[in-house]
């Protein structure tokens, strides 16, 4: 039970600090710490917990002001990323975290493009994605290390431990 509280607290802190501090630093590209927290938690706790954490973090990110996009866009992306991180995080941890951190901005852009957001095209992708992936990759080790410190290594039966937990929330 305290683990759920810890997770909620961690995600909420990441959400608020992302928009109030990180995004306002005087640099043009910043890492997405909410995404990295979701990846780390997914990799530690398994696919189901990862998808759940991703979904609700995404929902939080969608509702968090300032927001002007369709509700659920972030939820969709982070749900998939959380699941992917949990699914393959045990077998190839490094590769999975790297692929998720680099692939998530691409996925987000693809979802925006499919929803018909104006100004999202291949040129945007070429201009935005490499830098976003790079800064995410650079920041990922720090976040994963911090999450591992807080949670300890992935338990043997992560899914079984996580399922009763999320049901009670």
């Amino acid at each position: 039970m305290p683990r759920i509280l810890l997770t909620t607290l961690l995600v909420l802190t990441a959400l608020v600090l992302q928009v109030t501090v990180v995004n306002r630093l005087p640099v043009s590209v910043v890492p997405d710490f909410v995404l990295l927290v979701v990846i780390a938690l997914g990799a530690i706790r398994g696919p189901v917990a990862g998808a759940t954490i991703g979904f609700f973090s995404g929902l939080g990110a969608d509702l968090l002001p300032p927001a002007d996009h369709a509700l659920g866009q972030h939820a969709l992306v982070l749900c998939l990323v959380g699941f992917a991180a949990g699914r393959w995080g045990e077998r190839w941890p490094l590769l999975t975290v790297a692929a998720c951190a680099a692939g998530a901005p691409a996925l987000a852009l693809a979802v925006s493009g499919l929803l018909g957001d104006p100004g999202i095209d291949l040129r945007t992708f070429e201009a935005v994605w490499p830098m976003a992936a790079l800064v995410n990759l650079l920041a990922a080790p720090v976040v994963v290390w911090a999450a591992l410190k807080m949670y300890g290594p992935r338990p043997e039966k992560a899914t079984a431990a996580a399922v009763p937990g999320w049901r009670r929330t």
């Binding site: 928009v19 109030t20 995004n23 306002r24 910043v30 997405d32 968090l64 002001p65 300032p66 927001a67 002007d68 996009h69 866009q73 972030h74 901005p105 987000a108 852009l109 693809a110 979802v111 925006s112 493009g113 957001d117 999202i120 935005v128 994605w129 976003a132």
Partner: peptide
């Protein structure tokens, strides 16, 4: 005064 900013790729450029 600006208190928060959103700047993820694929999403809007908005401030609070």
């Amino acid at each position: 005064q600006v208190v928060a900013r959103r700047a993820s790729p694929g999403f809007e450029d908005a401030v609070e």
